[in-house]
Design a protein around this nucleic acid. Structure first.
Lengths: 267, 267
DNA sequence: TAGTGGTCTAGACCACGTG
DNA sequence: ACGTGGTCTAGACCACTAT
């Protein structure tokens, strides 16, 4: 970041059109240069993270934010542009800019990209198997950025597409963040898991990274998915991140890809 | 598109600061409104497609393009911004804007996202198996937007990572576009396939869409990949597109995912 | 020193959604 | 009619790269 406190003023005082600025004081040219709009982006992100504006809510208009940060509308505009590109904000012309949410969006297919062979997005229902609290293994601890033996929550569930059992998920969450998460509370909640995490625990999943392999079903997994042992399954290892790129979920999924496929677009 | 010929003038004549424009003539408000920068984007894309600027070359500076299209620099800037986001152009501060290329980029991992278990990008070498010309099946014809029995080229090859046979590819290309493509010419070429398609046949792959499944190796595939029949493989069906979203390649890949995984980022 | 892209500003007008 | 985001302009200055 630059040395300038972007929350109160702009740096060396860029000139507006017509003004003839001496450009004397402050030689600038900091070795670590960060544009103003990046700093504004950071300040907006802070407000999102602190909960000043909650998911689904509208944020102040561009002119209001420009006044608050003492910069031009164009600068907050560029900051919001990038935040919208990162799926943190959603712009709606004529209405305003809103905090993105996993709730009423049809955003569930952003993270579960399983389509039927005909390309349709079939709805799915979850069948919870268990929800236990235990101590993190070395592996899980490392991926969640915890210490080994720190408390974690383990959820197991099946996903059915059109009644067919298609996905088995094992989900690890940091125990401290998800205090009070029980199987009962899980089963009461209607809607996507990420929507629940967002509204009930204030933790919003921003991005995720997946490692995909083809594996043979071991007897346990095969039994749950009702396929023969050795059946080829898609193994999907996901780590999800919130604000500040902090990992908050490890998810291991096994997908039956007969009649369904994992959709990915390269660009 | 708007009614305005963006190549020669700007629409209703947006006012500069200070000017007081009557805003009389041309009621505008076309039901199909397309912003100026979108039209500029289209014109630039045309120049790319027509080969006015070839992959790797520099394009005219923003001020030059602004003069040519009779718009402000800011408008061509926004057009170039989007083209750069689409990976059609590459901006380099202080130097200029260049046409993206599959040649000297390390862009091969943009389309083949197979990483070693430790996360490293291992280099791979190709072993060509065959290159035949034949008539398109109904299925391939549909995906390539051809008529059944139209001529196509079929390439089969193996990919080795660190000497290990890891990928088997079957690649279908439209015969008319890839006239003169032979096994000999393929084997002479050094570098990625997409780089060759670009320089030798003037066809640049812009984006691709993949369908991923887990399958059991059939005897033929198993033999080529040196795994036992029934071994779980990642099946990757890709369709690649050039300018104008025209499909120009169908690729069916079988990946051995022991020691390697398919990397995907959701955001 | 000159040229390129990158940032920032200020102001005008347009399209959209609501009263 | 009003407020919001969306487009467009013109001009100044900054940062990077080459000569």
């Amino acid at each position: 970041m630059n040395s300038n406190p972007a929350s109160t003023a702009n740096p060396t005082g860029p000139a507006g059109p017509g003004e003839a600025v001496p450009a004397a004081a402050a030689p600038a040219t900091s070795p670590t240069f960060s544009p103003l709009y990046q700093q504004i982006k950071g300040l907006i992100t802070q407000s999102l993270e602190s909960g000043e504006w909650k998911p689904g809510e509208i944020i102040p208009s561009e002119v209001e934010l420009a006044a608050r940060f003492k910069v031009s509308q164009g600068t907050v505009r560029k900051a919001i542009d990038e935040l919208a590109a990162d799926n943190l904000l959603v712009r709606r012309q004529g209405k305003g800019t809103f905090v993105a949410t996993h709730n009423e969006d049809r955003a569930q297919f952003r993270f579960l990209r399983l389509l039927a062979d005909d390309g349709a997005e079939h709805p799915h229902v979850s069948r919870l198997l268990e929800c236990r609290r235990l101590r993190a293994s070395a592996d899980i601890a490392r991926q969640l950025d915890l210490k080994p033996a720190d408390p974690v929550v383990l959820i197991k569930r099946l996903l059915q597409f059109d009644g067919e059992i298609t996905v088995l998920d094992e989900i690890w969450l940091p125990g401290l963040v998800f205090r009070g998460l029980t199987l009962e509370r899980l089963s009461e909640y209607k809607g996507p898991l990420y929507a629940m995490f967002e509204t009930e625990f204030g933790t919003r999943m921003i991005r995720a990274s997946e490692k995909i392999r083809a594996v043979a079903a071991d007897p346990t997994v095969a039994g749950l998915l009702q396929v023969p042992p050795g059946f080829p399954l898609l193994s999907v290892e996901r780590v999800s991140y919130t604000y500040g790129d902090r990992p908050v979920e490890v998810r291991r999924g096994w997908y039956v890809t007969t009649g369904y496929y994992y959709q990915n677009d390269l660009s």
